[in-house]
């Protein structure tokens, strides 16, 4: 029995890289200083799907919604072993909250066709909401297994999954199809092979073709390039709203029930503070003061 999986991935700014340098003197953030990366737990989701395919056969399709630059995470998905990758990109998706995002993703999944499992990371590091997975599952009308740590067994149309939380574990059995959100501790994503990384450098979305044709004049035309990429498993499919059967009022900002009323860059009012010298004398004086004020002791 083989299984068809769909993996939802997201390109995110590496919010873990926020350091003093990324913060400006006014206390705001220089976003451009943050690298765009593959959302870490989405890599765990992809790995879990690849392991299912390796053990049972089937296919792994990776889907990402985002701006054109997000093609990069799909290129990476290809060289990590995905069979098919699709970028869902359209200005109409812009400003989507998790509700509108899950609506668009569910529509794209329905367009991909029958699946046994949808995998996504537990949460994305830019929003930390952990909402898109469950919201997509509801729209697909399938059960969800959040905090998935490992697949214990997969047979007879049922999956047994170990879930893991800070303070415990749970073993559940669920009918397929279903959606799983995968924890960062679930597995060690396989390192992409260097050879494949070079091979897949050519992988592209159609929007990138003109640039590629300038560099690789040997293809001659976009059609020839497209055919070459498709034949060599280098094609990143590009879908817009035109490819989906969607109600446009449910997309993007207009389809988002939540609205951002205001965003405050937190300009910290400095607490009255004392500078302590990093010397034996300075530290000793600090400890003495803390003891005197009953903070320590």
């Amino acid at each position: 029995m083989s299984y068809n999986s769909i993996v939802l991935v997201k390109q995110v700014p590496d919010t873990r890289a926020v350091t003093g340098e990324v913060m400006t003197a006014e206390g705001t953030m220089n976003r451009a200083a943050l690298p765009a990366i593959f959302n870490p737990e989405d890599l765990n989701a992809l790995e879990m799907a690849l392991q299912v395919r390796d053990q049972h056969g089937g296919t792994v399709t990776v889907l990402s919604m985002g701006p054109l630059q997000a093609a990069e995470v799909l290129r990476e998905s290809l060289y990590r072993g995905a069979d098919r990758v699709i970028l869902l990109s359209d200005r109409k998706f812009a400003g989507a909250d998790t509700q509108a995002t899950s609506y668009s993703l569910a529509k794209a999944i329905q367009k991909i066709g029958a699946f046994d499992m949808v995998f996504c990371g537990r949460q994305a590091i830019d929003g930390d909401t952990a909402q898109v997975g469950p919201q997509t599952a509801e729209k697909l009308g399938v059960p969800q297994i959040t905090y998935a740590e490992s697949i214990v067994s997969l047979a007879d149309g049922e999956v047994v999954v170990q879930r893991a939380f800070d303070l415990g574990t749970e073993l559940v059995k669920c009918k397929l199809p279903c959606l799983l959100t995968v924890t960062g501790s679930a597995n060690q994503p396989r390192p992409p092979s260097a050879r494949k990384r070079i091979e897949y450098k050519l992988a592209a979305i159609p929007t990138e073709y003109p640039k590629l044709l300038e560099k690789h004049t040997e293809f001659g035309s976009a059609e020839a390039l497209d055919q070459y990429l498709a034949e060599h498993h280098l094609k990143i499919e590009q879908w817009t709203t035109a490819n989906l059967d969607v109600d446009e009022s449910q997309l993007g900002l207009a389809g988002s029930p939540t609205q951002v009323y205001k965003v405050n860059y937190v300009v910290l009012e400095s607490t009255e503070s004392k500078d302590i010298a990093p010397t034996p004398e300075g530290i000793r004086a600090l400890i003495e003061e803390l003891i005197k004020e009953y903070i320590v002791g």
Partner: peptide, 21 residues
């Protein structure tokens, strides 16, 4: 209901509202 939370990796504080739903 003003729903106030740190956003974008916690580098800003956002106030979110749901006007209609």
């Amino acid at each position: 209901l003003y729903q106030i939370r740190p956003a974008f990796g916690g580098n800003v504080i956002a106030t979110i509202v749901n006007p209609k739903t």
